[in-house]
């Protein structure tokens, strides 16, 4: 797994549950407390070990943790850059949803060896969409749900999101209903960051 992802899990656990919790989880997972570096690659087993240890230590389901992680990635003030990069996907939430198909290609433009799940959006009309997520790792659809929820806040859109489970082939389906694309004021987004 890419270090960017592992590092994200680490900072999410540390910022949300505290340094002591992270240290305990790292020890339980058998990794050093310094954890992961963003620009290195790690064995997938290390990621799974951290997720399993966090789930046991915090008594929380793996799926819940992954969704919270997705939410954290977009809404935590320290990670404003990721939120900005996602906002480049479109001028409205619907635009953003349609840009998800090309998200893996966008990610690879920035970091060549970063593998995001293949995402495929189908539109069923009346604001209803289905997002199919394939690959990266089991449960990445839950991260996607967290990201989509937080991005809806960012765009000021009102949405209902539901993870509809995994099929035998490992495809995860997410049902999206866009109720109101201008529900609340969007968080401001300038194409070029201040001072950039």
């Amino acid at each position: 797994m890419h270090g960017l992802f592992n590092r994200a899990i680490q900072t999410f656990l540390r910022d949300t549950y505290g340094v002591a919790a992270w240290d305990a989880i790292a020890a339980r997972a058998g990794i050093a407390a310094d954890g992961f570096e963003t620009m290195l690659l790690y064995d997938d087993a290390a990621t799974e070990a951290v997720l399993a240890a966090a789930s046991r230590h915090l008594s929380r389901a793996r799926e819940e943790l992954l969704e919270d992680l997705g939410n954290y990635l977009v809404s935590h003030p320290g990670l404003v850059r990721l939120r900005r990069l996602l906002r480049f996907g479109g001028v409205s939430y619907a635009d953003f949803l349609h840009s998800l198909d090309e998200l893996p290609a966008r990610a690879r433009l920035a970091v060549r060896d970063l593998d995001l799940p293949e995402l495929e959006l189908t539109e069923a009309g009346e604001g209803r969409f289905t997002l199919v997520s394939r690959g990266a790792f089991p449960g990445c659809g839950h991260v996607a749900v967290g990201v989509l929820r937080a991005m809806a806040d960012d765009y000021g859109a009102l949405v209902l999101l539901e993870h509809e489970g995994v099929d035998a082939g490992g495809e995860e389906r997410i049902a999206i209903q866009l109720l109101d694309s201008r529900f609340a004021a969007a968080r401001p987004f300038a194409l070029v960051a201040a001072g950039g």
Partner: peptide
């Protein structure tokens, strides 16, 4: 613009590393 920003984010990470 996305690429410019993504590049500088990655560069910052590499600097930190």
């Amino acid at each position: 613009l996305y690429l410019v920003e993504a590049n500088s984010a990655v560069l910052d990470e590499l600097h930190d590393l």
